[in-house]
């Protein structure tokens, strides 16, 4: 409702044209958003387009983008849903940093312009939307599900798990798949085979779960070639993670676990030590 009351100036600063039907400028404060634009059907190259948006200190960057789409330019394309930092849809680069735009308040940038781009290290589909194909494949690759024979047998009630056992993996189960860590990671961009922070943390989450029996199967994937070893412990993934998952910590633990498996493989037949 407050969004609609904020019917201040609108117009495309970049193109200089007055938009038909948009409200006339008033003396209310505004903030400039510079949006990355790219349409695969019409654009050879991406460009930036600027929009003046009414400044509301309760607004997040996502609110400003939605205001543009609703009132000024319906062609602006982005993903979003929950607006409360848990669905993971609205990650973008804001002034060069990967953030959830539903958690990035305009007041942290005002009065300066806010530049919004799609997450780096992903192919762009259109405007602020990136392709998730590779990311989804990597998630699937680590076998992120409970592996044990009686997984569908509910007759014995719940598998017991103490609070201490839960605490061993809980943090790594908090990932919302927002992909900010892939945008922050210097390895993801140039090592195709690198599974990346979120997928490795997810594999590690199941490896650390006391109910799971699939570690050796999972480690076969995680230990192959560049899957995990490419990580150079820059740690940016953990810095940008909005949910404090600490994928860098997960990878470090997984590497230690992997080294053990590696040595075990010399003295025992494969899988026996799982």
């Amino acid at each position: 409702m407050s969004k609609e009351r904020a019917s201040a100036s609108a117009g495309r600063v970049g193109s200089g044209e007055q938009v038909a039907g948009s409200p006339v400028a008033t003396d209310e404060r505004t903030i400039t958003l510079e949006l990355f634009r790219y349409h695969p059907e019409t654009d050879a190259e991406p460009r930036f387009q600027s929009y003046e948006v009414p400044y509301n200190e309760d607004w997040v960057v996502l609110d400003a983008i939605n205001w543009i789409k609703d009132h000024v330019d319906g062609t602006v394309t982005h993903r979003w849903s929950c607006r409360m930092g848990v669905c993971g849809s609205c990650g973008m680069m804001v002034n060069g940093e990967p953030v959830l735009t539903c958690a990035a308040f305009l007041k942290s940038y005002f009065p300066f312009a806010v530049r919004v781009e799609p997450l780096v290290n992903f192919p762009v589909e259109r405007d602020l939307v990136v392709s998730m194909d590779g990311f989804m494949d990597k998630l699937e690759a680590v076998k992120p599900y409970m592996i044990r024979d009686d997984v569908n047998d509910t007759s014995g009630g719940e598998f017991r798990q103490s609070p201490a056992e839960l605490a061993k993996y809980k943090q790594f189960s908090m990932c919302i798949n927002c992909m900010l860590c892939y945008a922050a990671c210097p390895v993801v961009g140039h090592e195709e085979g690198f599974l990346g922070p979120a997928a490795l943390a997810l594999g590690h989450r199941y490896n650390k779960d006391s109910r799971d029996h699939g570690r050796s199967e999972r480690m076969d994937v995680m230990l192959s070639d560049e899957a995990m070893w490419g990580c150079t412990f820059v740690g940016e993934c953990s810095v940008v993670c909005p949910k404090h998952v600490d994928p860098a910590g997960a990878i470090q633990q997984a590497k230690a676990m992997g080294a053990q498996e590696y040595f075990k493989a010399f003295v025992m037949p494969k899988g026996a030590g799982a």
């Binding site: 599900y145 997984v151 719940e158 598998f159 017991r160 798990q161 609070p163 839960l166 809980k170 799971d212």
Partner: peptide
């Protein structure tokens, strides 16, 4: 629970 949902637990598991 068997499929991995990390339900909060009592001390006895």
């Amino acid at each position: 629970e068997h499929w991995g949902c990390p339900w909060s637990r009592m001390p006895d598991g």
